[in-house]
C-alpha cells in the first residue's frame, strides 16, 4: 500500500519536473517582457528532438545533448529578435498570437526536418530500476530530478548574483525604470528568451529517454506548463517549478486513487478551486491593481 503511494509520488514528480521546467520558461519570459510565450513547449520539443537527431548522427550522448541545448538557445534568441522585437509595442494579446504563430512554425519545421515518428533517446545511465521502499525508480528519474534542482539553484544564483540576472529582475519590476537606469531592455528580453529556451531544451533532453519525443510533444507540455506557471503564481520562477511538481503529483495520485480516465480533469478541477480561493496563484504576490 505504501509502496503504491510512493510510486505515485515518484512518477508524479518525474512528470511534474517536465511541467515545472516548461513553467519556469514561461515565467522567465513573462517577467522580463510581459509576454506569455505559447511557443515554450516547442523549446522542450526542440531539446529532445535535436538530442535524438544528433545522437543518431553519431555524436556521443553528452555532446548531443549539449549541442542540442545550445542550438535551442540560439533558436530562442532568434525568435525574440525576429518575431517579438518587431512587435514589442503591441498589446499583450497580439504578442500571444505572435507566439502561437511561432509555435506553429517551429512544429512545422520539426515535422518537415525530422518526420512524424516518435523517437527515443538512450538512458543516460543504465536502465535497471532502483528499488526504493517497495517502489521503484528509474535512474533517469534521478537525472531529471537532479538536473531540475540544479537548474533552479543556478537560476537563483543568476538572479541574485549576476549583473544580467539583476537586470532581468529590474525589467520584471518596472521596465521603464529599468530602461531609465541604463539597462538594455531589448538585450534582457533576448536573454530571457534564450534562457527559457535553454531551460526548456534541457528538460526536453533529460526527459526524452523516459517519455520519448516527437515533433508534437510541445503542445501538451505548453498547456500543462502554462497551467503550472499560473498555479505557482505567474511571475515567481520557483513557484512555477513547484506548480509543475504539484500538478504532476496531482495527476498521478488522481490516476492511482480515483480514476485514470478523469485524472487530467481532476487536476484541473483542483486547480480551478485553488484559483477561485486564491486568485493570484499559490505563491504569487498580491499585486495592487493600478487604476
Amino acid at each position: 500500500m505504501f509502496g503504491g503511494l510512493l510510486q505515485y509520488v515518484i512518477s508524479g514528480l518525474t512528470v511534474g519536473s517536465a511541467y515545472g521546467l516548461t513553467a519556469l520558461g514561461f515565467t522567465m519570459i513573462f517577467n522580463t517582457t510581459g509576454v506569455i510565450n505559447f511557443a515554450q513547449g516547442e523549446f522542450v520539443m526542440l531539446g529532445g528532438m535535436m538530442s535524438v537527431m544528433l545522437h543518431q548522427a553519431g555524436l556521443n550522448l553528452p555532446a548531443a545533448v549539449i549541442l542540442a541545448v545550445a542550438a535551442a538557445t540560439a533558436v530562442g534568441a532568434a525568435v525574440e529578435r525576429l518575431a517579438i522585437r518587431p512587435v514589442r509595442r503591441a498589446t499583450a494579446i497580439n504578442l500571444v498570437i505572435v507566439t502561437i504563430g511561432v509555435s506553429i512554425c517551429l512544429r512545422g519545421l520539426a515535422m518537415l526536418a525530422w518526420g512524424k515518428d516518435t523517437l527515443r533517446l538512450p538512458n543516460f545511465s543504465g536502465a535497471a530500476p532502483l528499488p526504493v521502499f517497495g517502489a521503484s525508480l528509474m535512474p533517469q528519474s534521478l537525472w531529471v530530478l537532479g538536473v531540475t534542482l540544479l537548474i533552479l539553484l543556478g537560476l537563483r544564483l543568476f538572479f541574485s548574483r549576476s549583473i544580467h540576472g539583476k537586470g532581468m529582475l529590474a525589467c520584471a519590476y518596472q521596465r521603464k525604470a529599468a530602461y531609465l537606469v541604463g539597462i538594455s531592455v531589448e538585450r534582457m528580453a533576448m536573454l530571457s528568451f534564450a534562457l527559457s529556451a535553454a531551460t526548456g531544451a534541457v528538460g526536453g533532453a533529460i526527459l526524452a529517454p523516459l517519455t520519448m519525443t516527437s515533433y508534437d510533444v510541445g503542445v501538451m507540455l505548453g498547456l500543462k506548463g502554462f497551467a503550472a506557471a499560473v498555479l505557482g503564481g505567474l511571475g515567481n520562477p520557483f513557484g512555477a517549478a513547484a506548480g509543475g511538481l504539484i500538478l504532476g503529483v496531482l495527476e498521478s495520485l488522481g490516476a492511482g486513487y480515483v480514476s485514470s480516465a478523469y485524472k487530467d480533469a481532476l487536476a484541473f478541477i483542483i486547480l480551478l478551486v485553488l484559483l477561485f480561493v486564491k486568485p493570484s496563484g499559490l505563491f504569487g504576490r498580491k499585486s495592487a491593481e493600478r487604476v
Partner: peptide, 27 residues
Amino acid sequence: PALKLHGHYLAMATLGFGVIVQIALNE
C-alpha cells in the same frame, strides 16, 4: 467565480474549464 479573476488567471480558469468539458465529452 471565474470572472472575479483577471488577465492570465482568467485565461487559466477558462482553459481549465475547457479541458474539463472535453474530458467529460470523451469519457
